[in-house]
Nucleic acid binder design. Structure first.
Lengths: 240, 240
DNA sequence: ACCTGAACACCGTTCAAGT
DNA sequence: ACCTGAACACCGTTCAAGT
């Protein structure tokens, strides 16, 4: 029906001007996948669903993508491109660190299934590298020793990802917090006296408050704890 | 064939003494599910596989279990029963905390798919409560304020779960660390100078070393950072 | 009350066949 | 080279039918 001119391959148009078919590209696949992930959650981002949304069959995607795992890695990195790594000038390193990690937290929580995907995917794309580089730069400015900073970046990202995941899980199904709330709320004073006493505190605090508290906790520790308790881990040398 | 005497219901025996059929109970289902999870990973713990291992059909499980999600919660709590919450006497609170959390870490990593399951399941069973109670007790002994302790328990469990998950993921497929290693190892010095400089530190350290470092980091912070920066989060009152 | 087989609506992935 | 339909080997869950 349509003549396949390579120059207009990206905007094939039918006789009456309507788009006939979006040409398949890796970029289009990843974009559509992220769209489905953000709107309907991780389960909705199946190869079959993505293919359907692109008016094709699942098998067709395998030309541009190795498998589901690779697609997930690509989608994660595309989303990480939205993290605001460039902070404004004349801000303290504390503010900038909170800013970058807060932006990461927001990106994770504002895309329905992204935090869950991030928990199960190792981020190693270009945007993930930019993100890490930004964190290392800020920690260097804070005076954190280089090798400590390397591990600290890991800890910070891991924690923010985990709390974002926990937070988004709550909004999902029919109150999955309820089981915890019920268990903690109705716990027996005689068998679990301490849980009983702090049961309110355990359930209190919105995501943001806890997030910033935990961030300060980790920073305080990172600034104080050196890498090695015993400096030589693989030699027999003790008590230098 | 066999007479159904309720008293010997748990050990039905055939004519020649061989067990004819393991009677279905919730406990048997959860036990078998944990076995499959520990041996073959989370994907292997499907209702169909568990049923097959118990010589029955998937539909039969629904008499004892609401759905897969509930089975996962039951399996997690059964595994949490293995965490050594009772530490020996005359140990410092630091040693006891490291001991309990280390035991949790070991339980997670020694069962192939458990850390992954724990990341996606809210622990609210009796053994989870015992675990939390033990942590709260130790933190109280450390002099941590009650409401801080409540949030600290959350942070500690979240982190240990996350790092156990990350650690077990590595051993699973065909070196899923490899993509990170390659990305970090071959990163350009001009675009990502700081990653390039600490690329060795980023990849160094086994699970245990990093685990204990991060633990000290969090403890140091927990002992120092109070709950509220501005004490009243929901009132308009500022600068008391 | 408990168990079962079959069915329903999904998956990821492969492959022979088309253009 | 790219796309496709059909097939393969799986899922969780439901349901009518058996005992």
């Amino acid at each position: 029906v349509t003549e396949r001119n390579p120059f207009e391959a990206r905007t094939v148009v039918g006789r009456r001007g309507g788009r006939v078919k979006a040409p398949l590209t890796r970029d289009a696949i990843v974009a559509k996948a992220l769209e489905l992930l953000a709107r309907d959650g991780l389960d909705a981002m199946s190869l079959r669903n993505v293919a359907k949304a692109l008016d094709t069959g699942a098998a067709s995607l395998y030309v541009y993508v190795d498998d589901l795992q690779q697609l997930q890695a690509l989608v994660l990195d595309r989303a990480l491109g939205k993290v605001a790594t460039k902070a404004v000038r004349n801000k303290s390193w504390e503010e900038r660190l909170t800013g970058v990690l807060g932006s990461y937290y927001q990106v994770l929580t504002q895309h329905r299934g992204l935090a869950q995907l991030a928990m199960g995917t190792i981020a190693a794309g270009p945007n993930a590298l930019d993100f890490m580089e930004a964190l290392l730069e800020i920690l260097a400015e804070a005076g954190v020793e280089e090798s400590v900073a390397a591990w600290a970046v890991d800890l910070l990202i891991l924690y923010v990802t985990a709390i974002a995941f926990e937070q988004t899980q709550r909004g999902d199904k029919a109150d999955p917090l309820a089981p915890v709330a019920r268990a903690v709320g109705t716990v027996s004073e005689s068998t679990h006296p301490r849980i009983h006493r702090v049961r309110e505190a355990l359930l209190s605090g919105d995501g943001k408050t806890r997030f910033s508290w935990a961030l300060r906790v980790m920073l305080e520790g990172i600034l104080r704890v050196p890498i090695a308790p015993s400096r030589f881990t693989h030699s027999g040398k003790k008590k230098s």
